[in-house]
Simulated scan of single mutants.
Amino acid sequence: MDTSFVKTPEVQSLLDKAAGLNQPGGDSRLKTIVRDLIEAGAEIIVRHDISEDEFWHAINFLQKGAPEFGLLVPGTGLEHFLDLFMDAKDAEAGLTGGTPRTIEGPLYVAGAPLEEGDVNLTKDPDETGSLYMRGRVTGPDGEPVKDAVLHVWHANSQGWYSHFDPTREQTPFNNRARIKLSADGKYSFHSKMPNGYSVPDGGATDTLMKAIGRHGHRPAHVHFFIEAPGYRKLTTQINFGDDPHAADDFAFATRDGLLPVPQRQGDSAYINFDFQLQRAAGADDEHLSSRQRAEAA
């Protein structure tokens, strides 16, 4: 059947009613968005002749997979699409330059200790080499960014993040910190070497990836937020450029300019990486998004 079926008066009337367009209350913008979502879903059903069994199988998958939505969103490319969309809007507005943004992922934990100087991120034992990372945070003219706070978090050598570790062997803020930078914009930290990881075996994300012929692996990487008065907040991460999955990250976080190759000496690695921020147009630019994030008890 042709998707023109969705444009018939009966179906269009259903979509209007389902989105509340014939009701006086509610948010008009949300009504329009909901209507477009339902119509897009209806067109997919018709275009691919989706059966009743297939439809409810998909609903069941989403219900069971709800705890992994934080992985499904990057794995399906939607989180990276948001970055591409924001980049395009920036370019349209003439906002260029600065360190590329990339996905946050689902594993940030709010409230990490605020520290200064050369910070040791790793609080728990880990039988692996060490990572040493340092650099500067500057503005668009190369000026040091004052009063900046750099949030940093990464996995341990087993690929587990503290707070989310199913082995429960890590303290809540292992390999996590907020670093208050000095007036010269310099930062430095060291930690036990992070490793790449795979999505949970047999989980919703793994099931989907295998069904479409993809893998669920991420390279070794380190996450960052940077916020400072007068500058746009930056959400980004660096992937280790020599990791086998650096060019094939299931979460699409790899971007040009975010692939430093560590200088390796024995079992330790050294990365020098500078961040450049854009100026904020207003106070809203300075703050993290309103995404719901985990908090340690």
Results as ranks from 00 to 15, higher is better:
K31P: 15
Y197F: 15
A247T: 06
A91E: 12
V137Y: 02
H57C: 08
L121K: 04
H151W: 09
P113F: 08
K192D: 11
M133P: 08
Y187C: 03
S4W: 04
A253H: 10
E79A: 12
A281P: 06
A283H: 10
T128I: 05
G94I: 02
K123G: 10
D284H: 09
G185W: 03
E10A: 15
N239F: 07
E116K: 12
K146P: 00
S13I: 05
P100T: 01
W160E: 14
V119I: 11
Y132F: 12
G139M: 00
F240T: 04
H154W: 02
H223A: 03
S198R: 12
S290H: 14
L208E: 07
G203Q: 01
G282M: 11
D285S: 04
T235M: 14
A112Q: 00
S13Q: 10
F55L: 14
I44V: 14
S162Y: 00
T138W: 00
A110R: 14
Q292V: 09
K89H: 15
L21T: 07
E43V: 13
S130W: 14
V199S: 10
N120D: 15
G20I: 01
F55A: 13
D274Y: 01
D87C: 03
H215M: 02
E54D: 15
A148I: 04
G257E: 00
K192V: 03
G70W: 02
L71Y: 09
N22T: 13
I38M: 15
G135D: 00
P140C: 04
Q23E: 14
I44E: 13
G159H: 07
I226M: 03
N272L: 09
R47V: 07
L131H: 03
R178W: 12
L181N: 06
Q158C: 09
D83M: 15
